[in-house]
Design a protein around this nucleic acid. Sequence first.
DNA 1: CTAGGGTTAG
Length: 697
Amino acid sequence: METPVLGFELRCPHLFNISSRPSSSLSPPTVSLRIPTTAAASTVVESPATVAEAPRSKRHSNTYLTRKSAISEVERSPDFLSSLQRLERVLKVQDLNVILRDFGISGRWQDLIQLFDWMQQHGNISVSTYSSCIKFVGAKSVSKALEIYQSIPDESAKTNVYICNSILSSLVKNGKLDSCIKLFDQMKRDGLKPDVVTYNTLLGGFIKVKNGYSKAMELVGELPHNGIQMDGVMYGTVLAICASSGRCEEAESYIQQMKVEGHSPNLYHYSSLLNSYSWKGDYKKADELMTEMKSVGLEPNKVMMTTLLKVYIKGGLFERSRELLSELESAGYTENEMPYCMLMDGLSKAGKLEEAKLIFDDMKGKGVKSANLVPISESLQVRFGGQLRSNRLASLPVFLDNDFNFPFSSDGYANSIMISALCRSKRFEEANQLARDSETTYEKCDLVMLNTMLCAYCRAGEMESVMRMMKKMDEQAVSPDYNTFHILIKYFIKEKLHLLAYQTLLDMHSKGHRLEEELCSSLIYHLGKIRAHSEAFSVYSMLRYSKRTICKELHEKILHTLIQGKLLKDAYVVVKDNAKMISQPTLKRFGRAFMMSGNINLVNDVLKVLHGSGHKIDQVQFEIAISRYIAQADKKELLLQLLQWMPGQGYVVDSSTRNLILKNSNLFGRQLIAEILSKHHVRPLVKSRSQPKFRCK
DNA sequence: CTAGGGTTAG
């Protein structure tokens, strides 16, 4: 039922604007010829208020039919806005909602937005309008859905459960689960009373995220607290979550539980359970499941059979897979590439490239189409890019960024799989050739396809093609992902374009992608070799501060590079933070290097850090340090500090150093020097810290 | 006759 929660009825044009046009200008309904023109016209001229309060059955029925025909007239009209203008007084807000949904279902995005605008301007709008509009728009773009949400003038409607469910669903569909949960909490604070659909919307977000199962279980756990019972759909979602994390036992127990509660499993439930068997390729259980399902009168559909195919492939039953694929073909379920792709991929991963290629060729011969997504209408961007944003956006919660999701048509799954398969078998020339073919065949490629081709070109060493692909991605405004960066950096290293690799890594880091240690490590090595020491250090630092632990050889490796590049202050930082993970010879090398040419003001600090880490400082280091101090008389204080520090830690100066100091003692005050050196007389036994006299048991 | 949620995918 339509509730006038928004308080628009007062502004409703029906009440004030009824006879702005003569009724004679109204066109007759074009659809339902059974309704006489006059009847339609007279209904229109009557105040809808009268209609609403006097539902005499005949007239009501007439009105209903009139409205129905008006709905389809608007839907079919080539210029629906003018039809809308004409039929304004016939159509109720719920009729407009029906039209809106029809536009949404048939992908008429521009019309949907125009109608929504029109309804807003005419104050003929309801909760359902917002809910539906957000649903359709939000499937494509979170930010646009949020703009609509923010534009709702009635505060109480913002916590309407249907509207909230729509907006939460938009966030989930666009992979913004964290934002979704935050917004959900916010909405609850603002008065939302979540229902079973709300919870299920959130749960839906856990289907394809890692650790989704345990997070989902937390949410399921709070259902009783909110007095919500799981329904059939929610069991479907929960089973999908189990399946997507390979938890077949949990899935089985949920099926059991739902049966106990009196729900009979349908195809959704069975296909998720089946999918949970695909992880281990448990075809035995899968067959049993199919038998049970048929015994309760359910016919396997396309999804079911495709999922079964997946189980057989995972289980390595390629002969049965091929048979099942034929069954899919005769059932008409192979109008797109997907099932062929699954089999090809499975075969190639099992090392059966030739058999995979046979499937590929067979599929190509049959002229199978690839699955295309409908691209977002440009008008939608234009419309919302303009006036609607502005002041409203400023009030959006900060955690919700306005990201777009552009679904591009995704041609060429099969080619992409085949290219990967060829690369896997190191047949780079063939992969290269197929990538070129794909480029000419498919106008637009999605990111995975682009990455696959890029990879093939890189492996084949086709620099020009690599550059062409990068340009293409740029032109198609496809932003590179982790894989893209990874492929490129590896390739640049291989081609000895180390600085380019470095630049690309910086780019990757700035885009927020995690850095892989092995790749960084290799780059650090090569940058060191070409004496790009500070670049090497910046790679190390990026890795160091984005990861909790890194392999200890890396500290060692960077230290050698820094010493070689005389970046001793950086080296000191590395030693200070990781001394315990660095080998003694490397510490020694660092110590000597620092004594020789490190910042003289830090010499004592460095010695203390080295010593504090358990490193035994050798005489050479002291000797170099002390000669530097002597050569620089203004560092007198530092020398005295060092000499005073040494005996307490079990170090004494050797005789040549001692002589050097005495020779220059006039610079420091003979008396003081003699006093300090007297403590260096007795060379204590090197019973080091690691060998305490008394061991505790 | 009236909004919002669940199945296969490189």
